[in-house]
Write a protein that binds this DNA or RNA. Structure first.
Lengths: 138, 138
DNA sequence: CACAATCCGTTTGTACACCAACAATTCCGC
DNA sequence: GCGGAATTGTTGGTGTACAAACGGATTGTG
């Protein structure tokens, strides 16, 4: 028996890292004001309204330590505010500010353009297929 | 005209982040001794032999600052050694040690198992399709 | 009611990942 | 051969990401 071949370039993890690198570059070119993570958190907050910090984290798949940093930076930019929850003294309720709402609405088109450009090497059919398969790996 | 809808859950970047999170967890469960990044660098070094630090970085798509940290950690684990290049005083030539080679060879099967498990929600056909499309987005 | 289990947010530590700047070296064009 | 351009490795800074541990608050169960 020979050693099974290992081609790094054929491994999912490696390919995902490369694809993600390209995507991050496209994102940064379109939306320099926010990182993808920050944009995701802001989008969710605008989409479903005020949430506790950890709840927002769960809604965007970030653990408690990660969402804290993201929330802090969004607050520092004035896009999000935090207020204590009257019903639960542990919680801080995060809300998008008017500035945050406006910014998000103004960036929606850019966000869609980022996805478009990222997928542009594929045909329309392939894009749908890819997103479908990708969603099943989350 | 209404505002174009923006569904975070339908954006490539978000889906890739989620898929990658799942993949990282699978990797860590199979190969706790190394990170995916470290494994990739070690694999390349075993695959194509000694390389300068930056050349290795290019071979695994990591920038100079990133590969430095990875190389340092691989050296600290005794899997890689660095020697000055006699032909170019700027360069450090990195090589896998015997320990590094052996470890890599012993982990090849696990590496393939990681890819398998990551793709396991898809059928064989879908796996091939997905990898094909993914490779074109790098 | 009491107390264990859970949840909230925070901190610390490790590890990518990229940008920008830097000194030392090598390369290249003229 | 010489001087500008490029390359090598390094550092510092910012921003994810996750694990582990913590104190304080709340919930659930007996």
């Amino acid at each position: 028996m020979t050693q099974p071949a290992y081609s790094l370039d054929a491994q999912v993890g490696y390919l995902m890292r490369r694809a993600n690198q390209r995507h991050l570059a496209i994102f940064a070119a379109h939306i320099p004001a926010l990182t993808p993570t920050q944009f995701a958190a802001l989008a969710r907050l605008c989409e479903i309204g005020p949430l506790s910090q950890n709840a927002l984290g769960r809604a965007v798949a970030m653990d408690a330590a990660t969402i804290k940093g993201v929330a802090d930076r969004l607050r520092a930019k004035g896009l999000v505010t935090a207020a204590p929850d009257p019903d639960d003294r542990r919680r801080m309720i995060l809300s998008a500010t008017a500035t945050g709402q406006t910014l998000f609405e103004r960036l929606v088109d850019e966000g869609l353009a980022v996805s478009d450009e990222t997928l542009s090497p594929l045909s329309q059919d392939e894009q749908r297929q890819f997103l479908d398969l990708l969603a099943r790996l989350g």
